[in-house]
């Protein structure tokens, strides 16, 4: 049996908004550690890994490990019915064919429950190896979202290059080219506005902007994003979910023949 209660229900609403366009159906894994998900997009180019740790919930009970297959579009429809200030409770059973979402208004004067049908999903878990990254860039999530959006109006791919000069985002398309360089900047009023570049060695990789733009849907979850790059490895774009865990997107680089 799974029973979890999340006082900050808006977090779950934001999580769904940040994965539903990338992944149609996914298994949520319930364990004593927390509520998690690993899923690939339909073309198997990107992978999303979500963890909401049990300690982040006001109440968390999971008697045994099990998975619940959900259509994320349908789950998003249900969660959109929760108010931003609502407390969300999720209840499910191992082997059950439905999951219940309960929404309580902060003043407890409105209580709603929605029951959603579960589905059987054949999903494969991938082993994500521990990697030493050549470069790790931490920057404001809104800035990264802006860069991806701007570049995608010019080209389809972005080359992300990290050198000692900074991190460069480049694209080219039919109408021309664009280069945006962000330098390390730690002299800011708030730590979340800083751009921090840790570079072991220079790295340059090419990615499809369509996926990057999709990842930036997670920006409302965190003021900062961390981009980890290594030659010939998938990039990791990570948004921390305060007090609870993370959402990590992995994207395979494009490779020259």
């Amino acid at each position: 049996m799974l029973e979890l209660r999340l006082v900050q229900g808006s977090l779950l609403k934001k999580v769904l908004e940040s994965i539903k366009d990338l992944v149609n159906d996914a298994n949520f894994d319930c364990s004593a550690t927390g509520f998690s998900l690993q899923a690939m997009d339909s073309s198997h180019v990107a992978l999303v890994s979500l963890l909401l740790r049990s300690e982040g919930f006001e109440h968390y009970r999971c008697d045994k490990n099990f998975s619940m297959g959900m259509n994320l579009g349908n789950m998003s429809k249900m969660l959109k019915c929760a108010g931003n200030d609502d407390i969300i409770t999720i209840k499910g059973d191992d082997g059950g064919d439905t999951i219940t979402f309960m929404f309580e208004s902060p003043s407890q004067d409105k209580i709603a429950d929605f029951e959603m049908k579960l589905m059987d999903i054949d999903s494969e878990h991938l082993g994500i190896p521990e990697a030493e990254y050549h470069a790790i860039v931490r920057m404001p999530s809104a800035e990264f979202a802006r860069i991806c959006k701007d570049l995608s109006s010019i080209g389809d791919t972005v080359i992300i290059s990290v050198t000692k000069e900074g991190v460069k985002f480049s694209t080219k398309g039919d109408i021309g080219t664009a280069n945006i360089v962000c330098r390390q900047n730690t002299t800011v009023d708030k730590p979340e506005e800083a751009t921090i570049i840790e570079m072991q060695e220079p790295v340059s990789l090419t990615f499809a902007l369509r996926y990057m733009n999709s990842f930036t849907k997670a920006s409302p979850l965190s003021n900062t994003v961390t981009i980890s790059l290594s030659s010939e490895l998938p990039v990791v774009v990570e948004y921390k979910i305060a007090e609870m865990g993370y959402i990590r997107y992995y994207l395979a680089p494009k490779i020259e023949d």
């Binding site: 690939m40 198997h44 990107a46 991938l126 082993g127 499809a208 494009k254």
Partner: peptide, 14 residues
Amino acid sequence: GINQPTITKFFAKL
């Protein structure tokens, strides 16, 4: 040309 490999090329199925 430039190719888009799948993520399974990098991460093995468990």
